[in-house]
Design a protein around this nucleic acid. Structure first.
Lengths: 318, 318
DNA sequence: ACCACTAATACTCAATCTGAGCATTAGTGT
DNA sequence: ACACTAATGCTCAGATTGAGTATTAGTGGT
């Protein structure tokens, strides 16, 4: 049994930060081969995965991570393209990657410039239902998706995932949507992975894709993270790990909206939020917006307790 | 970098089935060294983890799994005791185990006897808040827990996890509770893991423990699975993967109660359930209970859709 | 000092959901 | 026909939501 090829455990981290305008993820790699921060797990040096993740993210990017949570372990053969720059996996090795989500809190311009951050909607334009660009992105994809959906099973999956035919758009089904686009060949990774088996490079595709690709299966990992984060907002107070220490309710709402890609009903958002007891007002005000000054809030002690719930998301009408 | 010790990927499965009276998990191993079904992942033969899990569970136990979901990847050093019967990991190897939950549906007596099934409350008596035995189990532990909680931080963790001081009992915090008991040395694994480093075996403990131990960190894996399952019941219609094809609402309620270890308010349970549209009545009746015959229901098409929600759990008063 | 403008905050109202019970059946066994 | 036992039905008040309308308290000119 010792002739088995090695298994290499890679760790990838989806590090999310909120920077004034939106959710941004930390990237690494050279142009053309951009991916998530990725490190390999050293069975001797690292006692736990989590420590290893904190470790390599900090040493690669200088950030100290706050909240860290294991995401998923990706082990499918064939889905990952070889990571060119790792230089330590031979063909015979099997790379299994344990993905982590980390929330880096709210970062300032300085920190922002220190790392390579990108708005996550660059990779998933269709996930932003608030912007014109997002709506347009989905409109571009839908005809092709529908053309691909030749069976009823496919049709119903598409309808569910993308909220067609009266189904509602579920912001957390990011992965389902990505998987469908992948299967339908509408994201670049699909073509790349198909080509991989062959010796000859495929001719460059005619197709212009919507959304930028990432190295290996990192876009899938990112989709998983987005979905998890969006779902978790509803049942655990994690937004506060992305928000600054003091914030106005509008800022918090903006943050949630941009993470979930949807518009919320303002008055109802504040109402449920204040009732929840997750925030408490500091005395201070914030008057930089040109309107009535807003109260500054902080997360309350309640929000730090183990069983604390998340936010309700009162969607705004059309 | 090629001198690294090998990493071995183990797969462990928490296979849950509902057998008339309660949730049962599939076990394997010899008496005294009971654990979860465990297999090691073969990087060549297995294309995906999920296939590997289905594969080894079926070959080890004869069951075909239904719903399968990845649980967590456990990689902490020191938490796992060596698995005696694996015989393929040398001391230098690092075993990382990817845990899966699988729901085996509703099993009959024949299937039940074919495998080694155990009521999961054998390992977590305190998790059953409906039975006298469960209440008593917790009462036995609380004094020791309180004695251990010397700092305010510990006290508040204990209070949160076990629903003391007005905090409510959260059925899904199974892992938090187990971790606290472990840290407090109130479960057998704690003592075993501490003894592991030493050459001499520790003298047998005087203490009588509440709840049976499992091999390696399998009880922790099981706790994770229970927590996940209990939480998931609320937001995804997974109960139906444990219920028989046709069931009465009382049977379904029983199933949920036993999984979550709490009593529910009957009328309200049926009300929300019927409103949810997750079930639909077959015409048939079931009259074996000695009372008014009950309508037999099935899960509806809605309950199979991607975005379908779970059940609400209207707790019954004291 | 006064006015227009812009967000932030306050209130309202109806439609739903929930928590708790009380009341009515439709079988089974005698 | 009668007692018993679950399964169903119904009711009511209190809390939560979805959607708006109505007031503020600053800011930037004039």
């Amino acid at each position: 049994m010792s002739a088995t090829p090695r298994v290499i455990i890679g760790l990838s981290a989806v590090v999310v930060a909120a920077s004034g305008k939106g959710p941004e993820v930390l990237l690494s790699g050279a142009p053309g081969a951009i991916g998530l921060p990725f490190g390999s797990f050293d069975p001797i040096g690292h006692r736990t995965f989590e420590l290893a993740v904190r470790d390599f993210v900090t040493s690669q990017t200088g950030f100290a991570l706050g909240y860290v949570e294991q995401l998923y372990t990706f082990g499918d053969k064939g889905r990952e393209a070889p990571l060119a720059d790792m230089g330590q996996s031979s063909d015979a090795d099997r790379v299994v990657s344990v993905g982590y989500i980390a929330l880096a809190g709210s970062i300032d311009e300085g920190q922002r410039r220190a790392g390579v951050w990108a708005d996550w909607y660059r990779f998933f334009p269709w996930e932003d239902r608030r912007s014109e660009a997002g709506i347009r992105a989905l409109d571009l994809l839908l005809p092709d998706l529908k053309a691909w959906a030749t069976t009823t099973e496919r049709q119903s999956r598409v309808a569910m995932a993308f909220g067609l035919h009266g189904q509602s758009w579920q912001e957390s089904q990011v992965l389902d949507r990505f998987e469908l686009l992948y299967e339908a060949g509408l994201v670049q990774e699909a073509q790349r992975d198909r080509a991989k088996g062959q010796t000859q490079a495929m001719p460059p595709a005619e197709r212009t894709y919507v959304g930028e690709p990432l190295v290996s299966d990192h876009r899938r990992i990112l989709a998983t993270a987005m979905g998890r984060l969006r779902a978790k907002i509803r049942y655990r107070p994690i937004v506060f790990d992305l928000a600054p220490a003091r914030f106005t309710l509008s800022e918090l709402q903006d943050l949630v909206e941009v993470l979930c890609g949807v518009k919320l009903h303002k008055q109802n958002f504040r109402r449920t939020l204040e009732r929840s007891g997750l925030v408490e007002s500091t005395g201070a005000m914030h008057a930089e917006t040109g309107g009535r000054p807003a109260m500054l809030f902080t997360r309350s002690a309640v929000s730090r307790q183990a069983g604390a719930t998340g936010l309700s998301l009162p969607l705004a009408k059309r």
